[in-house]
Design a protein around this nucleic acid. Sequence first.
DNA 1: TATGAATGAGTATTCATTCAT
DNA 2: GATGAATGAATACTCATTCAT
Lengths: 206, 206, 206, 206
Amino acid sequence: MAPTQTSPWKSADDRLREREIKREAVLRAAARAFSERGFHNTALEDVARDLKVTKPTVYYYGESKEALLAACYRRALDTLDDVTLAAGPESASARDRLRVLIIAYAEAILSIYGRCLTRVPDNSVSPPIRTELRAIKRTVDDRIRAVLTQGAEDGSLIATDVKMTAFAIAGALNAAALWFEDDGPRTARQIGEHYAELFVGALQPR
Amino acid sequence: MAPTQTSPWKSADDRLREREIKREAVLRAAARAFSERGFHNTALEDVARDLKVTKPTVYYYGESKEALLAACYRRALDTLDDVTLAAGPESASARDRLRVLIIAYAEAILSIYGRCLTRVPDNSVSPPIRTELRAIKRTVDDRIRAVLTQGAEDGSLIATDVKMTAFAIAGALNAAALWFEDDGPRTARQIGEHYAELFVGALQPR
Amino acid sequence: MAPTQTSPWKSADDRLREREIKREAVLRAAARAFSERGFHNTALEDVARDLKVTKPTVYYYGESKEALLAACYRRALDTLDDVTLAAGPESASARDRLRVLIIAYAEAILSIYGRCLTRVPDNSVSPPIRTELRAIKRTVDDRIRAVLTQGAEDGSLIATDVKMTAFAIAGALNAAALWFEDDGPRTARQIGEHYAELFVGALQPR
Amino acid sequence: MAPTQTSPWKSADDRLREREIKREAVLRAAARAFSERGFHNTALEDVARDLKVTKPTVYYYGESKEALLAACYRRALDTLDDVTLAAGPESASARDRLRVLIIAYAEAILSIYGRCLTRVPDNSVSPPIRTELRAIKRTVDDRIRAVLTQGAEDGSLIATDVKMTAFAIAGALNAAALWFEDDGPRTARQIGEHYAELFVGALQPR
DNA sequence: TATGAATGAGTATTCATTCAT
DNA sequence: GATGAATGAATACTCATTCAT
């Protein structure tokens, strides 16, 4: 509900919110440019132009080009972290959980940040940040393995080699992020469902 | 057999051969640097230093930086093209052919050129070259699909969705190229065998 | 004692006074930063941070960065002008006047503004301002020469080459401003006395 | 003697020599620009223009702007180090040695590198380099003090306060470097002689 | 008064590429 | 064949300055 009397001055709160919105816009523009044109083929000037602002404004919201990339990576990985954690109730069968997880993973990895993560090699961020990012990747990988292990135990999935199977699933989904486009014929969710069907089918005990 | 009288001057033939050897060395050094440090984080000066020569020498064997990258890509794709074409006699069962193909694909994609192909985004080569390369990729993909289709027909494999299955297989193998190292614990062949087992097992009719 | 009824609103007078105090604080902070870190290595943001305000506030009290520097220079030169003018009564012997003058000069040149003057080259202010400043320097120099000339006349000092002697005295004192620190072992006055002793002794007729 | 047959190709030796000459030219141009316009008011592009080359050429001979400044400083300090070391035979009277030393110091400090040293504050070089430079300054200062001490001992000079006297001498000479110009009315040597006369006279025992 | 946001202008630095030797 | 020298073009980043609020 809007206040009866709206002040033309923004409250401190509004300003903070607006700032967050703008920073998010900068990050999205960067992620889009980086994933489409490549990190080094993108000048921050390009990002600025896409946003219809000037270069220093981009710097006002993002410390440096590298920091921008790192922030995009983190957005992607944090989302992956969240969604893989929440992949269905532990009470459900591993098969159902795997289905949910694959779909959620697909949606995350096919998002603009996810595409940035898979398409831009991490050579361009400093080793400490690289290490930090790899730790999250590892966590996400562990979540996939956990479901497969559960499946081997409850008999709802065959998983002779949990590690490799997890790699194959993630690899296949990541590969999809290399060609996926927002305005393509299928939505991220549809692709996720397709892959879920494929893998759950392939891992179905006979 | 060496000639009875060896001249200190090289024959035109020798010269050509030597030139080929040197060009190959330049390409390998470039592929290694590009895949390890990234295309734009690699200065041709670095490549030159690795070879213990100077920058103009690199130019003597490689037209330009972009051309060097394109040549690395082609080396990788041509090999993939060759090995997928030769994946077992058409007379063999699709299951056996798939096994052979996966192993051969793995060896190719885990080679230094294959790693360059998977790790370096193709944003940095000109659109025409990109198109050319994608055509070869498509051919290779078709080879995988063909084996899967054959498997669906001869009953040695289940492949409800040939296209996606092919993508998943290639995606998983390509993903392996992101972390594979020449001096790691397992050889490319071993990894290939592992994946072959995994996929052939998963696609086994019940 | 406070007025019986204090208004929470400041009088126009108070406001002016407060403004002067704040401007002085800005100038001192600028002088300190410029002399310690250098003019170009100091961003106005740094000055603002030292004062715990923001950049536009600094602009509110100082027209521009260059104007700030010019104001610091003027503070220093005006003080030098004042103290060298007041160096002892004309009736005193030149020797005594020189002693007083050297001490006063030392105190002025070792102040924060004096250090700013000696440490920051005047390349960064516009030629017109440079000219203006040099005129004051010249005046100050003339004051020193006048005392030396008086000494040559009244026989209390030997000064075969007034011009060079004046240069040497000023040069030595200015040089001290390059290493002097407020919290060093000796006060500005002590250093001044030391130099006074040195020069008066050296210029003592035999 | 030129060889009877001059080859149009430069020998490796010639090349090295030429390179040294060019590097020296770059340093001199940098020192000139830095001391006249100030370090930060000089763009390397300006230096390049003075030399009629392009910016990257300047980089070919000088690692970075800071390194260029440091090299200028070192040129100046090394010369000061050399000439103060060689200030007359130890057998000579301290008075004569002081005369020689002041003249030599003056010539060094009034050279283009010396002027760069006195006019450009060392805020712009990194702390390690600053430390290194200050060590040389200290050595030079010690040389002056040593002569004064010798003078106090052999009775050829009065020096009640060796440390301050040395500071005064160096300060006065350094100050001269602030206004000296190559095409001014007096040569560096003349100025040096003038100062030598002044100080030796002032320090003459009565 | 004081501040958050935005910008114009400038500059150090890098690097692919060329060319005379 | 191979190299030292030189350059054109690009780009990240900084900072003084302004303005609406």
